[in-house]
Every structure is written in structure tokens, then in C-alpha cells.
């Protein structure tokens, strides 16, 4: 771990100025990902700017019903918030399915979506990785791909985004408030992350010095019937093989509206627009669920590898989507 300067500025604007003014500066939130990377040599900043304690740590309800979640709100507090549990159960469930009690007490709302991939090759500085070192090559191609992408990957990067929270946020039409060197702006959550294409070193559209200050959840009545289903190799304390965030509205056996996003399968929390289009107006049946999955997974491409690759994720995701939708419809019928 390389030595670095540490600053704990008084406010967000000062923090942004500090980081924006130094290309080798980083923000420190809950530390759960950055401190890990400092030890691994994946991150080697000159300057670490601590922001976890200066960002808003409250959840406020705005006029019109939007919930504004301060970027400093810890994952555990967000998951336990009664308004979130009642209006957006998918978000609470997603948070609670991630990491461990200790880590959720540390991780922040602003930091969570910016955590980096857990690709074993990205985390090992002795192996080539285009995300860590552009142009060095992707070791996951032909490597161990059990935890890698089947959607939207490129020959340059097979990594997946590891966050559970982000999958729920993507499904819920959340909006991200960003403070940058040139002031504040808001971007849709689904526009925050980017596919790897030829530049996998960039996880998001944020520029250096941009700081997430809050995430807004606009009112979404159908989200009261929403769920997060995470499938993993251990019953707890493990990243997703695949996950599904879904919300549906059903009237007289017909799905009138739906939100769906996938985790564990792409470089981004994958909003499943194609699946949603199939679902809207269709009868709540197994055939519909399958058609929705097929539509979304039409372009899915598995990766092979010495451990059998990850082709299993495609049927697994199809089955998990069906199970999640079936469960929500069943709940709705009660």
C-alpha cells in the first residue's frame, strides 16, 4: 500500500474541489471497497478525501412524494427505513441480501453503486486486466468466468457489477444527484453505469471529482409489490450468480405494468426493458414470464472457461425471473 495524504474536508464542495484538483485523488466513503483495493494495489491514490461523515445521512420526503436518500446514509439504515420497506421492498431486500451486517453498517448509499467489480483478475494486480490497466488484456476471457457477464460484455471485459442495491435502484427509476466541479446535476440511475465496450476502465459516466450526494426515489406505487431474488453459491455473504429485481401490477390476471432489472450478469445493473415490454399487457402466466426472459436474453452470450464457464446463468436467470414474477403475482392475488 502506497503512502497517501488524507483529508477530511468540512463540506461536499470542498471535497469535490480537493479531488477534482488532483488526478490521483479519490473519495473515501464507507471504505469497504477502497480500503480493500488500497491493500491489493488495485487503487494507489496520492490523496484520499473522506466524505462519509460530511454527506447527508438522512432520508427526506420531498413534496410530491420523492424519497431523497442522502449519499451518507448507511446501507443498514436504508434497508431498515420503514418508508423504504413499505414502498420499495425490493430495495430493502436487495440491500439486506448484500454483504454482511458489519459491511452494511459501513457502506454508504453513494459509495455502493460505485463499488468496483469483484472479478478475480481485476483484483489481482499480477494478472492482466483492461479495467485496471487499459490495454493489458482481459484475463477473464478464457479464464474462470463463473461470476462473469452474459449480457453486454465485450472482448475487452467480462466483468459484472457486484452491487445488489444498484439492481433495485435501476428497476425503480431512481435518479442520482451529483455534485461536480461545475455544480450539481441529476442523472437517471440507469444512465450512471456504462457497458465496457472498448473502455472498461470506466465503470460509470461520472467524471473525476464528481461526488454522488443523494439518490432520489420518485413515487412508484407498483413498487409496493416488488421483490429482489438473489441466487448465489452460499446462502449468505456471497455475491450474486444472478439476481432479479422486479415490481409488477396485475389487474384481472393481466400484467398492467412492470419493472425488471438483473444483477450478476452484466457490467451494469441491467434494466430489462425488453422483458418489461413483453410483460405489459400480457396475461400473468408461465408463458409470459418465459417470453419476457427470452426477449431480454436473446442476445445473451455465455463465456467458457476451465471451470465449465457460465452458460448456466442463462437458464438460471430465465427460471429466476419466472419464479420472482410468479411470486409477486401470487402475492398480488392474496
Amino acid at each position: 500500500m502506497k503512502p497517501f495524504e488524507y483529508r477530511s474536508p468540512a463540506d461536499a464542495a470542498a471535497a469535490v474541489r480537493s479531488v477534482a484538483g488532483n488526478p490521483a485523488a479519490v473519495f473515501l466513503g464507507g471504505g469497504t471497497n477502497l480500503v480493500d483495493h488500497l491493500k491489493l494495489g488495485v487503487a494507489a491514490p496520492d490523496l484520499v478525501v473522506h466524505v462519509a461523515d460530511l454527506l447527508p445521512a438522512g432520508i427526506e420526503e420531498l413534496d410530491g412524494g420523492t424519497l431523497r436518500i442522502g449519499a451518507g446514509v448507511r446501507n443498514s439504515d436504508l434497508a431498515a427505513d420503514r418508508r423504504v420497506r413499505e414502498r420499495f421492498p425490493v430495495l430493502s431486500q436487495a440491500l439486506l441480501s448484500g454483504a454482511s451486517g458489519q459491511l452494511r453498517n459501513m457502506a454508504t448509499t453513494g459509495g455502493n453503486p460505485l463499488q468496483r467489480t469483484r472479478c478475480v483478475y481485476f483484483q489481482d494486480v499480477t494478472t492482466p486486466c483492461n479495467k485496471r490497466q487499459p490495454g493489458s488484456g482481459c484475463s477473464a476471457v478464457g479464464g474462470w468466468t463463473r461470476h462473469h457477464a452474459v449480457l453486454g460484455a465485450s472482448e475487452h471485459c467480462l466483468a459484472v457489477h457486484p452491487s445488489d442495491m444498484a439492481v433495485a435502484m435501476a428497476a425503480l427509476d431512481a435518479r442520482v444527484r451529483v455534485l461536480g466541479p461545475d455544480g450539481e446535476r441529476t442523472i437517471p440511475f440507469t444512465g450512471l453505469h456504462r457497458l465496457p465496450a472498448g473502455t472498461p476502465e470506466r465503470d460509470t459516466v461520472l467524471e473525476h471529482g464528481d461526488l454522488i450526494t443523494a439518490i432520489d426515489l420518485p413515487p412508484l406505487p407498483l413498487a409496493r409489490r416488488s421483490a429482489y431474488r438473489k441466487v448465489r453459491d452460499r446462502a449468505s455473504y456471497a455475491f450474486a450468480l444472478v439476481s432479479v429485481a422486479a415490481a409488477v401490477e396485475v389487474r384481472d390476471g393481466v400484467i398492467t405494468d412492470a419493472r425488471v432489472a438483473f444483477g450478476g450478469v452484466a457490467h451494469v445493473p441491467w434494466r430489462a426493458h425488453r422483458a418489461e415490454r413483453v410483460l405489459r399487457g400480457a396475461p400473468a402466466t408461465e408463458e409470459t414470464y418465459r417470453a419476457a426472459a427470452d426477449a431480454e436474453l436473446a442476445d445473451a452470450r455465455p463465456a467458457d472457461g476451465p471451470d465449465g464457464g457460465n452458460a448456466f446463468k442463462i437458464p438460471l436467470l430465465r427460471r429466476t425471473l419466472a419464479a420472482t414474477l410468479r411470486g409477486l403475482v401470487r402475492e398480488d392475488a392474496r
Binding site: Y6, S8, G31, V35, H50, S76, Q102, L103, N105
Partner: peptide, 13 residues
């Protein structure tokens, strides 16, 4: 008062 992981917490914080 909260359980946290001291290995991922920088002492300066």
C-alpha cells in the same frame, strides 16, 4: 455502538 470491520476502516477516520 455499531458493529463494523476494523480491517476496512482507516484509523485516521
Amino acid at each position: 455502538g455499531r458493529r463494523v470491520l476494523s480491517c476496512l476502516t482507516l484509523a485516521v477516520t
